[in-house]
Design a protein around this nucleic acid. Sequence first.
RNA 1: GGCGGGGUAGCCAAGUGGUAAGGUCGCGGUCUGCAAAACCGCUAUUCGCGGGUUCGAUUCCCGCCCCCGCCUCCA
Length: 474
Amino acid sequence: MALRFFNTYPRKIEEFEPRDSTGNAVSIYTCGPTVYSRAHIGNFRAYIFEDLLQRHLELRGYKVHRVMNITDVDDKTIRGAREAKVPLAKFTEQFKQAFFVDSETLRIKRADEFPAATDQRYVERMIDMIRELIARGLAYQADDKSVYFRINKCPNYGKLAHFDLTQLQSTGRVKHDEYDKEHIGDFALWKAWDEEDGDVKWASPWGSGRPGWHIECSAMATALLGDQIDIHCGGVDNIFPHHEAEIAQSEGVTGKKFVRYWLHCAHLLVDGQKMAKSLGNFYTVPDVLAKGYTGRELRYALLRVHYRVPLNFTWEGMKEARESLGRIDEWLARLREIAKEENVQRSTPNAQRSIEPDFENALDDDLNISAALGFLFETIRETNRAMNENKRDATSAKTWLDWWKRINTVLDLESESEVAVPAEVAQLAEQRQNVRRENNWKRSDELRDRISELGWEVRDTKDGQKLTPRVTSG
RNA sequence: GGCGGGGUAGCCAAGUGGUAAGGUCGCGGUCUGCAAAACCGCUAUUCGCGGGUUCGAUUCCCGCCCCCGCCUCCA
């Protein structure tokens, strides 16, 4: 099955054909965090979607070159630094670090590059691009000294978002210097310095100031990935104006089609509403960990819903994630047990269906993760049944484990390496084993409770006791 | 007002012009000293509402309702 994605530009599912038609290289640019505060789980939903995209492309044999920018200068970072009374770089550094820590917790694959907007190389490139845009009549310096993009000179402007520019109206969300601009929709390429910017400023042909948000992505994307890139992702809220502006700027300078496929991720909702500090439903990764959940549980919860469908985050959903992962863990543990055994004669040879490519095919269809997971769980049930009926041998168990290994390059949902059983727990388990031999069930149950209090679960199987660490949620 | 996304069981969620995957929860059963895990069975005559097309629609068309988002620096 051919790989297909929903492209925001034509609003259609399209077969994926990278620019490099003979090779297998794919370039991806993803809008990264603005480091003015700790990224929240809604931000991470988008990053997990991008992670899934990259991993699936790699499973399909593509060599992915991915860039994620870090926006470390804008109104919010400047305001934050002012309020904290520290230099901008120092202020943003803590959130950059936190972003990487949280990404790792969620097992998000690192991009190949994380260019920062304040990097001198890129500031220079932004200035070059703005100069070029002015030379081509696509930009102008207004009376307020800022430089704006002239959207009326760009016939394609508005096509990504399907906006009619004459209908644009101010939401009041952003401060406008409307009298300075030719058109309300003209956006800043270079923002002239003002007092509130303090010492945050760069010299430019238009005076001191700083780059606008949109131009930084155009500059960094084309600097690292070339004039034309295969896939550009972000949240749906980036469609307008950000990505629209990126197209206008990049194509305005290069004259070439900037992006082949635009992929956008729907929002994360919390209890059916947009996440907001004022509603008390605003969560960061550490907030979720503090409730007793693990990074992989959150990864699963954010991954399991198709990226174009709004995802409602709830604590009940986190519990479901935990249970579902437990099912996978249990299945893998059983397979591993059997794979270790010598190939003893089993009554029936492979009765199970052959290893189906269903999982991967589902992902080919615009990353249909829900369908893919459906196949995984069907497989789990079927192989568990076969194991219950003793119809499994080491060879077929290994085959399934290999299959898991392959799909897990995309999912990355395996549990952390086994935690050693603490001495105290081991001792109690041994005692329990002894009293069980004497059929002292009362004492056995007491010991089971004790072990449970220590955070471990004991199960009696026909091969004796099994101890598994039990995660507790708060 | 304009532009999108969504409404499928208690909850989460695939999907198709021919009669509803999967997860989770709940109930019953097998297994167990009891549990746990696993498995088996049950749990939507029905897919927001009303029309239409069709032999047949949840799926296509028309109208309507509800939720969420974007409309100039929010993933």
